[in-house]
C-alpha cells in the first residue's frame, strides 16, 4: 500500500465515531412514524375537531375502514421502502416499490370506485375550509423530518427516495382528512389525496439536494 493511500485511510479512520444506537432502520422508521403522526394529528385537531360521528362510521362501515386501513398501510409501507432504499443492497429499485405502489393503487382504486358507489352517503358534515391547504402544509414537516433522518443513511437513488418520502408524508394528512373533513370520494381524491402529488414532486426535487451523496 502506498503512502498516499495510507494517508487517505488514516484520514477516514480519524473520522470514525461509534454508530449511534438509534441509527437502525427500524428505529429511524419508528421515530419518523410516531413524530409525524403526532404532528399531523395535533395540527388537524388544533384547527378543528374530527368529523362528528366518524368513530361510529369507521366501526359500522367496512369500506370506510378499508379505505383508512389501506391508507395507513401505505404510510407504513412507504417509510419502510424508503428506509430499505437507503441501505446499499443489490435488490432492484422496482422490487422495493412493489408494496407501496400496490397499496397506493388499492387506495386510489377504492376512492375511485366510491365515485359510483360511495362507502358513505356524500355529505357536507364536518367540512373544513381549505382542507387541501391543510393536507399540503401538514405533509411538509413529515417530509422534512424524513429527509433529515434519511440523510444519516445512504440512499443510492436519491430522487426516487425523496419522491417516495413526499408521497408517504402526504398520505398521513390525506388519511386523517378522511375522518376529519366531509366525506365525498371526489372531494377526497382532489382535496385530501391530491396534495400528495406536489409533495412527491417536492420530495423528488429536494431528495438529491438534501440526501447525502455517498
Amino acid at each position: 500500500m502506498s503512502a498516499p493511500h495510507d494517508d487517505f485511510i488514516d484520514g477516514l479512520v480519524g473520522e470514525l465515531k461509534p454508530k449511534p444506537k438509534w441509527l437502525r432502520p427500524i428505529s429511524v422508521g419508528l421515530i419518523w412514524w410516531l413524530a409525524s403522526w403526532a404532528f399531523v394529528f395535533g395540527a388537524i385537531l388544533t384547527r378543528a375537531p374530527l368529523r362528528p360521528g366518524f368513530d361510529g362510521q369507521l366501526v359500522e362501515n367496512l369500506r370506510l375502514a378499508l379505505e383508512v386501513g389501506i391508507g395507513l398501510g401505505l404510510g407504513a409501507a412507504g417509510i419502510s421502502a424508503a428506509l430499505r432504499l437507503s441501505v446499499p443492497d443489490p435488490t432492484p429499485l422496482g422490487q422495493r416499490l412493489v408494496i407501496p405502489v400496490v397499496l397506493l393503487a388499492g387506495w386510489l382504486g377504492l376512492l375511485a370506485y366510491g365515485l359510483s358507489d360511495p362507502a358513505l352517503a356524500p355529505s357536507m358534515l364536518g367540512k373544513r375550509e381549505g382542507c387541501w391547504v391543510e393536507a399540503l402544509l401538514y405533509g411538509l414537516p413529515p417530509l422534512a423530518l424524513g429527509l433529515a433522518l434519511l440523510r444519516r443513511l445512504a440512499p443510492l437513488s436519491r430522487a426516487p427516495v425523496g419522491a417516495l418520502l413526499g408521497l408517504t408524508a402526504g398520505s398521513l394528512p390525506g388519511i386523517l382528512m378522511q375522518l376529519a373533513c366531509m366525506y365525498d370520494p371526489w372531494h377526497a381524491l382532489t382535496h385530501h389525496v391530491g396534495p400528495m402529488i406536489p409533495l412527491a414532486l417536492l420530495g423528488a426535487v429536494l431528495g438529491p439536494r438534501i440526501l447525502r451523496r455517498i
Binding site: 454508530k19 449511534p20 441509527l23 445512504a154 447525502r212 455517498i214
Partner: peptide
C-alpha cells in the same frame, strides 16, 4: 468507493 463505504458505514 472507500469514501462511499466510509460514508455509508453506519448502514
Amino acid at each position: 468507493s472507500l469514501l462511499a463505504v466510509h460514508r455509508a458505514r453506519d448502514t
